Lab assay of single mutants.
Amino acid sequence: VTLFVALYDYEARTEDDLSFHKGSKFQILNSSEGDWWEARSLTTGETGYIPSNYVAPV
């Protein structure tokens, strides 16, 4: 499992996005959609889309 960590805070703009804070960790579920990845937050357990340029591999 590849884990990613948030580099910045992000406020969701749609109900499909995940809001998160810098330092939040994610499991990436689908990275084939270009700049928006489907991810599960390891902090909240919620699933949604995150901007790929806001995260980096742990």
Rank of each mutant, 00 (worst) to 15 (best):
W36F: 10
K25T: 12
S32D: 11
A39N: 00
W36N: 05
D35V: 10
R40I: 13
V5W: 06
I28Y: 02
G45N: 08
Y8P: 00
E46D: 08
V58L: 13
D35H: 10
G23L: 03
P51N: 08
G34D: 12
S41M: 11
Y49S: 06
I28D: 01
A39E: 00
E33Y: 11
S52Y: 07
T47L: 08
H21P: 09
W36R: 14
P57R: 07
R13I: 11
I28R: 04
T47S: 08
T2S: 12
Y8C: 15
W37C: 04
K25M: 15
F20V: 01
D9Y: 04
D9W: 05
E38Y: 15
Y49P: 02
G23C: 08
S41H: 11
G48C: 04
R13F: 08
A56M: 10
L3W: 11
V1D: 14
T44G: 04
T14Y: 15
G45Y: 06
Q27P: 01
E15N: 12
A12G: 11
A39F: 03
S32L: 12
Y10S: 02
G45T: 03
R13M: 12
E11R: 08
D35F: 14
V1W: 13
D16A: 14
I50P: 00
N53V: 08
V5M: 07
Y10D: 01
L42N: 04
Y10H: 05
V1K: 13
T43Y: 08
F26P: 00
E11Q: 12
Q27A: 09
I50L: 07
L18R: 01
S24G: 07
E33R: 15
A12I: 02
E33C: 15
S24F: 11
G34C: 11
K22L: 05
Y10Q: 01
R13D: 08
E38R: 11
R40K: 11
R13G: 09
Q27T: 10
E38I: 15
T47P: 02
G45P: 01
G48E: 01
E38M: 15
L29P: 04
S41A: 09
D17T: 15
S24P: 01
N53C: 15
S52M: 09
A56V: 14
T2Y: 11
G23R: 02
E46W: 06
S24Y: 13
L7R: 02
A6M: 02
S19N: 06
F26W: 06
S19I: 02
P51D: 05
Y54C: 10
Y10E: 00
I50S: 00
R13L: 12
F20D: 00
T44E: 02
E46M: 11
G34E: 12
V5K: 04
S24Q: 15
F26G: 00
Q27Y: 14
D35K: 09
F4Y: 15
Y10P: 00
A6S: 05
L42V: 11
S19E: 04
A12W: 02
Y54L: 11
V58P: 03
T2R: 12
A56F: 08
E15K: 13
I50W: 01
E38N: 08
V5H: 05
L7I: 10
E46T: 07
A6H: 00
W36M: 13
T47A: 07
Y54S: 11
W37A: 02
N30C: 10
T43K: 09
S32P: 10
S32V: 10
L42M: 11
E33F: 11
F26D: 01
L18Q: 03
L3C: 12
S31V: 11
E46L: 11
L3F: 12
T14V: 07
Y8F: 11
S19G: 07
S32M: 11
W37D: 00
F20M: 05
L3G: 04
T14I: 06
N53A: 14
G45Q: 06
T2K: 12
E15W: 09
S31P: 10
D16N: 15
S31N: 12
V58S: 07
D17R: 15
V5R: 04
I50E: 00
K22H: 06
R40A: 06
V1S: 13
G48I: 04
S31M: 15
G48H: 03
G45K: 05
G34V: 12
E38K: 13
K25S: 07
